[in-house]
Design a protein around this nucleic acid. Structure first.
Lengths: 212, 212
DNA sequence: GCTCATTTCAAACGAACGTTTGAATTTGTT
DNA sequence: AACAAATTCAAACGTTCGTTTGAAATGAGC
């Protein structure tokens, strides 16, 4: 979490774990496979939880579309549950995960892609049903913004030291953090679509970036 | 941009640039200082542009508060101008910058912190004037979400390959991307504040994550 | 209690890293 | 042309990396 995948040596890990260096290659095969195992152990159950929670909400809604807040809650609650699991370093795992989102290593990107594909598809369908007036393509972008803000927030809020001078104990309160993030994102998701986003000749859609 | 700071060797860089390996240490001192020089050359002028543009908008508004869209435009337009400068690899620089936001290396975090502190303070003041009903602390969080979504978007939209199956030529159209991001973020910034966000006993503020 | 598969361990391997060195080369000035 | 400063260059430095090796230790089944 602190140093990223490349800069974290196996010697650092095995020393901290009080095991032999060769144990990693014996039990996991390589450093990459160890990393994938670390992520899979918690990421896969978390995404399963997310989808089950979403399904539970949908059956409870009985055919009616869910609110954005409800769908976002299905994304955030399993993450929070994991953050609360102090026995297994929950908060640190979410930060490791947030860092992995931005890691350029191809094997990490492919791994995350395979781990998220199914969950993202489910949630996009839910948002699409909840926001029928938003075109599919526009919704894809907004879902991207949601994932970006979420991963960035989970990654550790180091940027907060620049943006604000909040107390450090407040900056690490992930629960409060997500309670602020969800309404913010819900408002963005619900916001009316600019007219003709695909047509570049629309004046109202363009003047925004024309000046200066 | 592709491999991150740690995984990009000086031999890769100097070979691609057709210069000698030792030239980096002779002219820049170290790999870290080279990286800072690469960032500073464009980041510093970009942030200066942002602040000047914001000041221009403010004097044009003649004492009246700016809209969120206007303030966001002051953040995005200089970034777009840089992205359009193909002579100097503008788009690639923004992606390098987005990656740097998430890089855990302490010297990178300190460097970015010093480069952004002044600009962030200016923009927070502008948002605070534009959104007087949002408490200072809540605004800090929202500004954090804005920076997160922006950096994640600029970092390369690799997650889009998971989220949607958009055409790759569309995925790289940064201008359209920011035109979609700005309204999304403006809606989030403007969204009404949940009652008593600091008090954890408020029922309406808590039930959101209590269930399941 | 012996056997054999599994796991642990210290040591070493080859490769790649950022950096340094000191001699060549180029450049600018007289 | 000659000198001095600045720059380039090939080579090597010491370190660290992920991985491999082969022997020692452990554990389960008969």
């Amino acid at each position: 979490m602190e140093h990223g995948f490349e800069a974290t040596s196996l010697r650092l890990i095995t020393t901290a774990a009080a095991v032999n260096l060769a144990a990693v290659n014996y039990h996991f095969g390589s450093k990459e496979e160890l990393f994938q195992a670390v992520l899979t152990r918690r990421l896969d159950p978390m995404n399963q939880d997310r989808m089950q929670l979403l399904s539970a909400y949908e059956t409870a809604a009985d055919g009616k579309p869910l609110t954005c807040e409800k769908i976002l809650a299905a994304m955030f609650i399993p993450a929070l549950k994991l953050a609360r699991d102090h026995e297994q370093g929950g908060k640190n795992f979410l930060r490791l995960l947030g860092r992995a989102y931005a890691d350029p290593a191809p094997f990490i990107r492919e791994f995350l892609s395979s781990q998220y594909r199914e969950m993202i598809a489910r949630f996009r369908a839910a948002f699409s049903f909840a926001l029928p007036h938003i075109p599919r393509e526009e919704l894809s972008w907004r879902l991207h913004f949601v994932m970006g803000a979420l991963s960035y927030t989970l990654a550790g809020a180091d940027m907060l030291k620049i943006i604000s001078q909040l107390q450090p104990h407040e900056a690490t309160n992930d629960e409060l953090l997500l309670q602020r993030l969800a309404p913010f994102l819900a408002a963005g998701l619900r916001s009316p679509c600019a007219p003709n986003n695909t047509g570049p000749s629309d004046d109202d859609g363009q003047h925004f970036f024309q000046e200066a």
